[in-house]
């Protein structure tokens, strides 16, 4: 039963925490009431499970011997310094930020973990203040079906495998990021023996564990920020001359510079020079604005836009170009 199990594990934790020496199994069986009345085999099984569960919760249960001459006489202990949250002081500006944190996650599991982390801070005397930044309601979602398994593997450093674009990939998770509502995983791809970034939404089904937690190390010189920069749009290295209809396309205007001397420009339009990186994406972006934006130069971009517009205008239109 849950209550009895919780009680037994709590008493085991207190017993191991209170002792400076390693506590031997026979002694634990004697002093922790939850182990009374069990057969030898049942005690062994229950104790091993409880000990593993404490470790799974993050409680640092150490194994060792008190006597160097008899290293096989093992016992267990929890070192207080490794167990307790170190003292952290927070300023009012910081507790205001913490006060918003509890309501950010849309995923119930991660919301629970955040509340649990905040409860530990409260238990250490920190008072997260949700009122000061009440104008803000940030949120993070995680609706990708593969997210929970990949996140847990990332947190515990457990290698996983999953289907991705029709291939099975074996990956050691290194880091994750949420960008504009989509989750990405950075990890070592064992098959390719190289780092790779995966979009979690593109993972087929869910990930399967292929190794134990903590069974790999992150590289010493890991530059996570650099990997994430590859997901950002490339810096603009080309410029286009565009005719922008008056009062329209203000966002392009903000990112460009006016070219009042360029001629000819259709009446009701002004010429602007605007930077861009990928010609294909930029042509699509300009098409979305219809007749509000006309490309003057370069000619390749102008032709790309016209070709795309013709595809939308459809074959029924004679276009009368030859008339």
């Amino acid at each position: 039963m849950t209550q009895q199990k919780s009680e037994r594990i709590m008493n085991l934790a207190i017993c191991l925490l209170m002792s400076r020496r390693f506590v031997e199994k026979a002694h634990i069986r004697e002093v922790v009431e939850g182990y009374h009345g069990l057969s030898d085999a049942a005690f062994e099984r229950t104790f091993e499970r409880d000990k593993d569960e404490l470790r799974h919760l993050g409680v640092p249960v150490e194994t060792g011997s008190n006597d160097p001459l008899f290293p096989d006489d093992v016992g267990y202990r929890i070192l207080r310094a490794a167990f307790e949250l170190p003292a952290i002081e927070f300023t009012p500006a910081e507790t205001a930020a913490l006060g918003l944190a509890a309501s950010v996650w849309e995923s119930a599991t991660q919301a629970g973990r955040t509340v649990s982390a905040l409860a530990k801070l409260r238990a250490a005397g920190v008072d997260p203040d949700p009122t000061r930044l009440s104008a803000f309601a940030p949120s993070v979602g995680a609706r990708e079906p593969a997210f929970p398994g990949i996140w847990a593997a990332y947190a515990e450093r457990a290698p996983i495998s999953f289907g991705y674009r029709g291939e099975v990939r074996r990956v050691e998770p290194w880091a994750m990021t949420s960008r504009r509502g989509a989750w990405y995983l950075l990890g070592h791809d064992r098959g390719r023996d190289a780092p790779r970034v995966f979009k979690v939404a593109r993972v087929d089904g869910v990930a399967t564990r292929i190794g134990k937690p903590g069974s790999y190390r992150l590289p010493e010189d890991l530059d996570v920020a650099k990997a994430w920069r590859s997901l950002e749009p490339a810096a603009s290295d080309e410029t286009a001359l565009l005719a922008l209809r008056d009062g329209r396309a203000n966002d392009l205007r903000r990112g460009g510079s006016p070219e009042p001397d360029v001629q000819p420009v259709p009446p009701g339009y002004q010429a602007y020079r605007v930077g861009y990186a990928r010609p294909g994406d930029f042509a699509a972006e300009l098409c979305a604005r219809g007749a509000d934006v006309l490309v003057l130069a370069p000619d390749t971009l102008r032709q790309a836009v016209i070709t795309r517009l013709e595809a939308v205008a459809g074959p029924t239109d004679e276009r009368g170009a030859e008339a």
Partner: peptide
């Protein structure tokens, strides 16, 4: 004093 954060708690926060 409370226990240290588990990795999952710390990363979620």
């Amino acid at each position: 004093r409370p226990m240290r954060f588990t990795p999952d708690e710390a990363l979620s926060l």
